[in-house]
Design a protein around this nucleic acid. Structure first.
Lengths: 203, 203
DNA sequence: CGATTTAAAGACCAATCGGTCTATATATTG
DNA sequence: CAATATATAGACCGATTGGTCTTTAAATCG
């Protein structure tokens, strides 16, 4: 089953980086939300002309989905590093939570989270968004539960802690951190809160 | 310092209930969010004419603030009942959390929370909204901390549980429940998660 | 009654929305 | 070179946005 040799493209080649454009668009949606983002905002951020943007992405909604997918992929990649199986699970969980403390403090906190904002703004009405949000929470919960299960196997969890329900608690907690983080609490406060919660789970 | 006897109003009296209109408007903002709510939506819900609505509330943003204030007042009133000082504090906390389980399940869950949606959509850019959101979280945390302090005084808290940091944990957790609730998880799942968290705090 | 105030209906407004299209320049191919 | 494909700039589109204003009817007062 050989592929025919792909015919070389004929005309002027694409001269901009599509993924970089998605990333810049993601930044705009992240800062302003979906409905509050207007086409001129996206054109300014991506440095594309109207024509190029529509040719490359179709419409605003499709571009938004690309940006959301990118955001989700970045978040899962980060978690896979923080909670890597070869790492000490409790250390991994601490790193994971420390990342949330960092992202919910000061200016980063006030900027918020594209995923949480999208969940609140669109997940109820837009099925394509809704299933992405739901599968993200599932994926996050699975990773946390896996780390907790390894911690439990190593005897590091407090008595009576179930990895699966503890994972659901942690997922709710960190997403709530992002909500409360919009009011930009002090870093030490968030860190102390995270520490106090983790203390309830480890032995 | 007597008041002059208020002169009786001269013309046709107001014939609609302002608070009822605020409540109906709140329902629209709640379901659709601020930016996605258009004037015709508000006119349909309040059954007011454009002129009456602008005469009574000024503009869309002012009406939104009225609706948000109403939502916040309702939430705090509910908490004051659930966490009343004369009540057993642990029972109160269970009732408080059960309310969140109820509101994050099924259709109610998918509808979401006006406060969380507003925090994510507007709190970062709109100072009037931002300070309302921040003060709401403070007020909620204070009420939960108070209930936890009473529980601790009654010896019902597990060793090492600080009411103030536990209150911050619970606030983040319940707001995170509202986020995850947008994906409408099963009631038993949410209830089990809540129970597992509370079990970590009580003795 | 006449004076006054409000409500509803809807015309009207400039600005902006997301989206399409045309004109022109540019970069690649054979 | 000619053919092809893409980029940009910006005109253009109908629909909708939040908001104002006018008209007419109704409800209260002295």
């Amino acid at each position: 089953m050989r592929q025919n040799p792909a015919p070389l493209p004929r005309g002027r080649p694409r001269s901009f980086d599509v993924e970089a454009a998605v990333e810049r668009a993601m930044g705009v949606f992240w800062s302003r939300g979906y409905h509050a983002t207007a086409l001129p905002d996206l054109l300014r951020a991506t440095k594309l002309s109207r024509g190029s943007l529509y040719a490359a992405f179709g419409d605003k909604h499709s571009l938004f989905l690309r940006a959301l997918d990118r955001y989700i992929a970045d978040a899962l990649t980060r978690m896979d590093i923080e909670l890597a199986p070869r790492r000490e699970p409790i250390d991994g969980l601490r790193a994971y939570l420390a990342g949330y403390v960092d992202r919910t403090t000061g200016a980063k906190g006030r900027r918020g989270c594209l995923l949480v904002a999208t969940a609140m703004e669109l997940a109820g009405q837009d099925a394509e968004v809704g299933c992405r949000v739901a599968s993200f929470f599932k994926a996050m919960e699975a990773r946390v539960a896996d780390a907790l299960a390894r911690a439990k196997a190593a005897g590091k969890l407090a008595d009576g802690v179930e990895p699966s329900s503890a994972a659901r608690i942690l997922v709710c907690f960190v997403e709530g951190l992002r909500v409360v983080g919009k009011t930009a609490p002090a870093r030490i406060t968030s860190q102390a809160t995270v520490d106090a919660l983790l203390d309830r789970f480890i032995s």
